[in-house]
C-alpha cells in the first residue's frame, strides 16, 4: 500500500459557504473511503480567513497566496495500491461542482 495526499483547491471566486447538503455529500464521500479502510488520515479543512503568507525580506501578506486565483481548502491522505485508485477516489468528490480541483501526490 502506498499513501497519496489529496489536495483540495478552490478558486477564490467560489468561496461561499457550503450548504448542509454539500457538507453531507462530502462526509459521505470521506466516510465511504474510510469504510473501505483506505483512509490513512482524515486530514483537515484549512481556514481562508486566518491565513497569512510569509515571503522573503519579512514581507507578510494576509490570506493564502493570492497570485494564483485559487487556494488550498483542505487535504486528506488515502492508502491505495496505485495512484490510479487514488485518482478514482478523487473523482467522486463533490468539489468539482463548486469549480474546485484535486491534486493527487504520492507521499514519499
Amino acid at each position: 500500500m502506498k499513501e497519496f495526499l489529496l489536495i483540495f483547491r478552490l478558486s477564490t471566486a467560489s468561496s461561499q459557504k457550503p450548504s448542509p447538503e454539500q457538507i453531507q455529500e462530502r462526509m459521505n464521500w470521506l466516510a465511504g473511503i474510510a469504510a473501505q479502510n483506505k483512509l490513512a488520515d482524515k486530514g483537515n479543512t484549512l481556514s481562508t480567513l486566518h491565513a497569512k503568507t510569509v515571503m522573503p525580506d519579512n514581507v507578510v501578506t494576509d490570506g493564502p497566496y493570492a497570485e494564483i486565483k485559487e487556494f488550498i481548502s483542505g487535504y486528506i491522505i488515502v492508502k491505495t495500491d496505485t495512484i490510479e485508485e487514488a485518482v478514482e477516489f478523487a473523482k467522486g468528490n463533490p468539489i468539482f461542482k463548486m469549480g474546485g480541483n484535486i491534486e493527487v501526490r504520492e507521499v514519499l
Binding site: 462526509m27 466516510a31 474510510a34
Partner: peptide
Amino acid sequence: LKLYNQLILMEYSPVTALNR
C-alpha cells in the same frame, strides 16, 4: 448515517462499514 460516517472516521471496523 451521519453518526455512522463519524464513527467510521473515528475507528474502522468491518461491522461499522456494513452498518453504515
